[in-house]
């Protein structure tokens, strides 16, 4: 196997007395889609925030492309090639959709003109071209989630973290987003996905990592994970297992 693009080494994150993520380790190979699963409060988003630099791990390390990135600020990681979306989307509401993407494009295209040209390309890829001049606040939820992906893509990342980009969409919109994710994989991007909708995550992920109460309880292919008694217990309760 190739050298993993991301190594999560015994990462623990505590908030005061609460251990949100407890001694979690896993590797991500280049070009893979890894699904991060777990019931509400399992620590998925916290782990996301640790990997993308919003929190420093309490202990443990994150190795990205062979370098220790634990505790590095998000803007440094964006520059190194990590793009992320937010579960609670963060559009720049007072600005237009195009301006939102232009801001993200400045990272790779510091000149205004180049950034704008790049932003139009991203708009086309994410199906937002005809919404370019409306304010980001006036987008529907589906539109905002697309914008969120668009902004992450504008960074031209090698590694993409998607936090519930499908949840809350209707089936047609969801299918479109799944298509987009699979297209990105085809282009060689490595992706870590958090998603609640089983149908989606089971279908697109090469491998799954399952968290419960901050601990990793299973790792493997969709079929392997679905048979795992610990996973069944976490989702359906003890009796079912």
């Amino acid at each position: 196997m190739a050298e993993p693009i991301l190594k999560v080494n015994s990462v623990t994150k505590c908030f005061g007395g609460l251990t949100a993520v407890n001694d979690v380790s896993f590797d991500v190979q280049p070009g893979e889609i890894i699904g991060l699963l777990g019931p509400n409060g399992a620590g998925k988003t916290t782990l996301f925030n640790v990997i993308s630099g919003f929190y420093a791990p309490t202990s443990g390390t994150i190795i990205f492309k062979g370098q220790d990135i634990s505790g590095k600020p998000p803007y440094t990681l964006a520059d190194r090639g990590i793009g992320r979306t937010f579960q609670v989307v963060k559009p720049f509401a007072g600005l237009t959709v195009l301006e939102n993407i232009i801001i993200a494009s400045f990272l790779r295209y510091p000149k205004r003109k180049d950034a704008e040209r790049h932003a139009w390309k991203i708009l086309e890829n994410t199906g937002l071209t005809d919404r370019a001049d409306v304010s980001a606040a006036s987008l529907t939820l589906a539109g905002r989630k697309r914008l969120e992906i668009g902004k992450a893509l504008a960074l031209e990342p090698t590694f993409l973290l998607l936090d519930e980009v499908v949840a809350g969409l209707n089936p047609t919109e969801a299918d479109k987003t799944v298509e987009l994710i699979l297209e990105l994989k085809k282009q060689g991007m490595t992706i870590l996905v958090v998603e609640h909708i089983m149908r989606v995550i089971m279908n697109i992920s090469d491998r799954l990592v399952v968290l419960n109460f901050g601990e990793k309880i299973a790792e493997g292919t969709a079929a392997e994970v679905a048979r795992n008694p610990l996973v069944i217990e976490a989702y359906l309760g003890e009796a079912a297992a």
Binding site: A78, R84, F86, P91, F92, G94, I103, F106, R112, L155
Partner: peptide
């Protein structure tokens, strides 16, 4: 109004966490 600086400031105004994820300090 012309250079990227103005838009970057507006990004901070709208959402500094979101701006950080896009490579802005």
């Amino acid at each position: 109004e012309c250079s990227p600086f103005g838009l970057k400031l507006k990004a901070i105004r709208e959402d500094d966490q979101g701006a950080m994820a896009l490579g802005l300090n």
